[in-house]
Nucleic acid binder design. Structure first.
Lengths: 198, 198
DNA sequence: TACTTTTGCTAACACTGTTAGAAAAAATAA
DNA sequence: TTATTTTTTCTAACAGTGTTAGCAAAAGTA
């Protein structure tokens, strides 16, 4: 009986179309404008149908948060893959992080709860662990090579904080050339950060 | 005719009670729970009265953002006042910033649009300029003393970014001892940051 | 064809910010 | 004091929001 399979397939098609429609809306009008009723209209179903696929609106945002971190992890993984020196890897991570935040504006906004009621969602995202490990590996290598006594977790936090802070502050900036400025700040920070670990 | 004066006084009493009621609600239930109707109920007026004092809900949030930056600026000014060495001042600023974010959780959340639809409000806050100047002064002094060629604006951004990132990332952390960790990260960063400017 | 299950819809609840227009209160003028 | 004008404040409504209960229709099974 392939009928059960078809039902599952159709179910997942609807689920995909929900996320699809939601994403289109976010791209056009931002997270604020996203509403269950508008998604329903876009997929040509009534609003309650959405609750057969997602527990609530939060769950939809959670799914996008997860996807965002997946994309970010892939970006970073790809950036460090061709490099072997931990210093170079750290620099590559920083640039990949910034590039992701600029390229995938909406994703980043949601992931870090900037102007959204999805702030508590992040810590429940499993992909965050992968992200940590991705940064931790080169930091551990550098800590091992260093003459100083260095805590890789501490450095992970410092690096991550500055990267995220850089994006956040840059986003609320007034000037038009925020991108160039953030590029320079990043370059400057990375230099000091790596020098501080040697 | 003291009657006009009394009217103005009464008007401002109502305005103050709006902000008062709003703040109490935020302290108890967070920014998400703040609603015009609930404020109206608390001050024992009908909802439209609020629009005689504030253009819209955003304007109320804007006012709190302004107040938040005032408080932060005062905190920082008080912290650097007894110190003369720019290095010490920068360190004091960093600790004052962190202390403010921890002590005035809700203020900080609003000021930087964490989980709130008041993200665009920040750049319209005049007090932000004072804040910049407060950090810029010791950074300029250090840049002048340094053998290197240092851009104080660049360093301002780096410092601010890391401070804000530190708070943000720490807030979405899972562990209970986030405060101790952020304290250590801050200490570590300040060391590297100041060393990098000498 | 009759029965059962799944699916999807309408209608409603309890909210939200915001505005128009009427009613009540207060201040001014006669 | 009475009449008029101005100011203040309210009720009611509009257009939304997320979410749920319960019914009708479609689809699958016997």
């Amino acid at each position: 009986m392939g009928i059960a399979e078809r039902k599952i397939r159709q179910r997942e098609e609807v689920k995909a179309s929900i996320l699809n429609a939601a994403w289109k809306m976010v791209e056009k009008e931002g997270w604020q404008a996203l509403s269950i009723r508008k998604i329903a209209e876009a997929i040509e179903y009534s609003a309650p149908v959405i609750y057969d696929h997602f527990e609530n609106k939060e769950a939809i945002l959670q799914e996008f948060t997860r996807r965002g971190f997946c994309l970010l992890n892939e970006s970073i993984a790809a950036a460090i893959a061709p490099l072997s020196l931990p210093e170079q890897q750290i620099e590559a991570i920083a640039h990949a992080y910034r590039a992701f935040a600029i390229e995938h504006r909406e994703y980043y906004q949601l992931m870090y709860g900037l102007g959204m009621p999805g702030c508590d969602t992040v810590k429940q995202t499993a992909e965050l662990h992968t992200f940590s490990q991705l940064l931790l590996t080169p930091l551990r290598q550098m800590a091992a090579q260093s003459t100083k006594s260095i805590d890789p977790y501490l450095k992970l936090r410092t690096l991550w904080s500055t990267l995220h802070g850089l994006i956040s502050i840059s986003r609320m900036g007034e000037t038009d050339h925020e991108d160039e400025l953030s590029e320079m700040v990043l370059q400057d920070f990375i230099g000091v950060f790596i020098a501080g670990m040697r």
